[in-house]
Design a binder for these strands. Structure first.
Lengths: 331, 331
DNA sequence: TTGTATGCGTTATCAA
DNA sequence: TTGATAACGCATACAA
């Protein structure tokens, strides 16, 4: 057999009209139980499954949301998973469009638009805010992982996450908590603010230096602490990679982690969970972020009830994952 | 404006028939330069872009290949990139279907089949060989990263890769090369065979113990070497993660890498390239694998020339990436 | 070179 | 509850 069976084939075999087959396949009212049964069997027998293209062509709604993501980013994988499940629950299909070294974001977007997606979920978009705003005028857009003026956004509450992290260290009895800042990275300003707020609330003095996003930078920061002979009780790094660099240098220098110095990361990247690393860190609620993004999008698409007129900025609080890189202050 | 402009809109605006617009948009012969120009401008002005669904519905060929991949696997991202570029070159579109914790492979496959993909690229499929063989009878399938009887496969030449690795170590002057085996992991048998072959060719004795796939297992293997007080000149681990575990334990024990012991990995995972790790390793040729997969698929789809009747098993040789974890034998 | 008519597989409208 | 028919947006065979 070459040609895939069509709805008409099912109709012929079941001896009913095409309209009835359509009704049965869509599970809507308008067919008797007996024909329903007959059609189902006929479809089964010849291995029929509806052609979504033809279906969407005919219907005005495509019930399709497009999603861009960076294939290389591990965190995006979690979000993709979450969007899939949220979309299914809401009765939408998802079409993926990856951003890769040879396929930039405008390209990824174009294919989604061409596919007549009704709404877009942009994970970690790098597009200029202006471009995003323009896009959002054409089609409902939710940006995940970033905040953009005038566009719906869903992201982690970095301030709250940092506060949670500091509170964890305070509860362990630490007072000298050294924070390694992330500079201009997304979320860095917020995390720094959270650190400052929590430290101030506990009436503990600030201890801040530039950290960075990579192991190398974390390693450099740790080396400087060692040079100054000025080790804190705890180090709170902007992200896991930076924290890993810190741990690496400390351990090679014979400093025990966490007995002498606790180290706290941010992101819960896959590396953090590895047995011999076991980094305590803050996990972003990817499932929650994804669900929130889809719900907001569908809210606007289905126009049910009070989809807020202006752009929203939805925020989820990261959760603390306690592993073995933090411990109570030693006596 | 709510409705997206259609081909008919362009025809009206340009004052020509719909057929002509179709001809112009597809860049085929059959229209004068003047109308071509006029149509293009009209399309531009109203922001028209063809609806791929309607197009594919009408044509018998969809020129669509489906691709499953594991969103969480970093190596798959490289393959996705490669398939994208290869497909574009060959005039095919690609539709992605991710395998995630909440979306298993059968599900991912179903959507691709429903979308009327003409061929499938399955990256790292976990499906039973029987299921794959059945699938391959319905639609052209290429499995990447794995070998399956009766199904087209594209994968790295693990034997050759291991040989390359051993030869690198031999050239550095090492004779006692300890290989950590990957057990039942895909490719492990081949890599072990390559090690044996290369070592035998150099008339050096084998030195093999179970390694494993993770840092933890690599760490255990290294610990055992230390316990026995029997350090080799070089360790060749089944993969990068295992190699990392080895390095970690050696360094913490005060053994200098690579001065005292060279460590060689396999895969060139992102971790390997990190500055403070700098693991020498073998990189799989993701672009080459992806291109080979697409070429084989298109070969069968377009039926041009001698697409081999039976299943093929295409293999690409990994390349050595020399970093700082291997060094010449010290005097 | 240009236009007309028909069909792709489905759903929606309407009448029976 | 059923069935005939038009329409979705586009491409193709054929006629002009």
């Amino acid at each position: 057999m070459q040609r895939r069976p069509t709805l008409a084939d099912v109709a012929d075999r079941a001896g009913v009209s095409r309209a009835l087959v359509s009704i049965v396949m869509r599970d809507v009212a308008g067919a008797s139980d007996s024909t329903r049964e007959r059609v189902r069997r006929a479809a089964e027998e010849i291995g029929y499954s509806p052609d979504p293209r033809a279906r969407r062509l005919r219907q005005h709604r495509t019930k399709l949301v497009g999603m861009t993501f960076a294939a290389a980013q591990e965190f995006h994988a979690d979000l993709v998973d979450g969007v899939y499940v949220a979309a299914e629950k809401l009765g939408y299909d998802v079409v993926l469009s990856a951003v890769t070294p040879h396929r930039d974001e405008p390209r990824a977007l174009r294919t989604l638009l061409d596919d007549r997606c009704e709404g877009l979920v942009l994970i970690g978009s790098q597009l200029p805010a202006r471009r995003l705003a323009e896009l959002a005028e054409r089609v409902p857009v939710v940006v995940v992982t970033r905040r953009v003026r005038g566009v719906d956004a869903v992201r982690s509450d970095d301030v709250a996450g940092a506060v949670t992290g500091v509170e964890h260290l305070l509860e362990l009895g630490h007072r000298r908590i050294h924070y390694l800042d992330g500079g201009r990275a997304p979320g860095a300003a917020e995390r720094l603010r959270g650190y400052r707020r929590a430290v101030a609330a506990a009436q503990v003095s600030e201890l801040i230096s530039p950290g960075g996003l990579t192991e190398r930078e974390g390693a450099a920061a740790a080396a400087e602490m060692l040079d100054r002979g000025d080790l804190p009780e705890a180090v709170f790094a902007f992200n896991d990679r930076c924290a890993l660099g810190v741990m690496d240098v400390l351990i090679r220098a014979g400093v025990q982690v966490p007995q002498q110095v606790s180290v706290l990361g941010f992101d819960d990247s896959p590396l953090a969970g590895l047995a011999h690393i076991a980094l305590t860190t803050l996990r972003q609620d990817s499932a929650g972020l994804a669900a929130a993004a889809m719900e907001r999008l569908v809210d606007r698409l289905d126009g049910t009830g009070g989809a807020a007129a202006g752009a929203v900025d939805i925020v989820r609080v990261p959760t603390l994952v306690v592993r073995s890189s933090t411990a109570p202050r030693s006596a």
